[in-house]
Design a protein around this nucleic acid. Sequence first.
DNA 1: CGTCTTATTGACATATTTCAACAAAGGTGG
DNA 2: CCACCTTTGTTGAAATATGTCAATAAGACG
Lengths: 242, 242
Amino acid sequence: MTTACQACPLRKKPLFQQMSDDELVFMQKFKKGELSVQAGTTILLEGAASPQLFTVLRGQGLRYKTLEDGRRQVVNFVFAGDFLGLQSALMGEMKHTTEATTDMVLCVFDRNELWNLFRTHPGRGYDLTFLGATEEHFLGDALATLGQREAIERVAWALMRMWRRAEGLGLTGSGTAPLPWKQQDLADAVGLSLVHTNKTLARLKREGIAVWQDGRLALPNRARLAEIAMYDDGDIVQRPLF
Amino acid sequence: MTTACQACPLRKKPLFQQMSDDELVFMQKFKKGELSVQAGTTILLEGAASPQLFTVLRGQGLRYKTLEDGRRQVVNFVFAGDFLGLQSALMGEMKHTTEATTDMVLCVFDRNELWNLFRTHPGRGYDLTFLGATEEHFLGDALATLGQREAIERVAWALMRMWRRAEGLGLTGSGTAPLPWKQQDLADAVGLSLVHTNKTLARLKREGIAVWQDGRLALPNRARLAEIAMYDDGDIVQRPLF
DNA sequence: CGTCTTATTGACATATTTCAACAAAGGTGG
DNA sequence: CCACCTTTGTTGAAATATGTCAATAAGACG
């Protein structure tokens, strides 16, 4: 009773590159099933080797690293279309934890077939490398944000980022984007304390730039937010889907 | 008069995975020549599409992003064995600048043959993806360092990182590692001001933990440095060489 | 009706930045 | 060979952005 790749709702989204018929057939074979998890579930655990790879079909999540002393760095927010577990498949173990923030549905792949993928479908292997390069690009931007920008710029950057990603998935039709995370999650993503993050969000709201409440984000002054964030709109490019 | 891959001095270093004879032959064909550049030269420019890919054969460099207002984030320090330009080859343009800190020698590859590589040598394609995952891992660690750690921990982390990398290349035989960069470069890497970076380095020196002067780093108390850095020694794994 | 989680706000503490001045070293041109 | 200038490193004092502490509010849930 799973979704056929043919009928995958993500394929038509503007965010993703088109797939050839041949690739579609291959992906259907590659796909082993679906996994439904409740909000709060840990999908991949830092330090563990996962026998599986996932593509997010529905729902949102969080990827983070935990330091020895308990501090936490949110590495990225997880949206539909994200491919999870590649690190583990290649390097033996995950370097961060992935957790479901909302209920989620994931396509499941077998990591043992990854090598097969490279051998029989070099185009898909190429796409996987591309995906890695995309992630690398994102992390470079994030690094520059944490290293060089002040609080309001960091928060603005993170909000822009999430907004754009939601937009690429066609989730902003209502004028708001779903952001089911907590302020603490954002704080851990941008490297600020919870209190200061809260005050910064309050300022953006007070100035009529961005309003994040009840799990949804509205941008009454998106241009201004992009300006504060020094956000490069070419930032998100079409990406391959797995 | 270039170095034959067969005789590549990097191949035997403990840092790199071994290559099959077949792969060696292929790499020799893939390699188009060598490029020698002087210290200070820009090798790859942010925003530009490079027709070439490089592997660092000798020398050290720097990768950084520049923000609109001139602030600079050093993304990573470049050592021998690093593969440069993959982002440009896959995504059309580089997302950061790469610059030679010392004189450098680079192996040159043709980006147009990248697709060929995936098709005819899936194992090498796999390795390329692996390399991307390694970089992603590193950037995740860097992000956690900038986001969650205080000044002395950040500096300690960066020094450990560079030391370990030099060690993997067999560069620490003398008891010191070559670190040809400026304090400003380190400051831009860890997201601290130059002044505070300087004072933090002074403290590490005063306490007999790490001494960086005249372009070389000595670690009279490496255990303590690793402790401050919360440095995970399993951090650097064997990587493929291109 | 309590209890728990999340968001909010003010007051205070402090790590880090900024400003400024100086020292050491190397290069250049007279 | 020496004055001069540029680059890099060093140090103290003052300014400030952000963190920490503490208390309250608002909603969810059993």
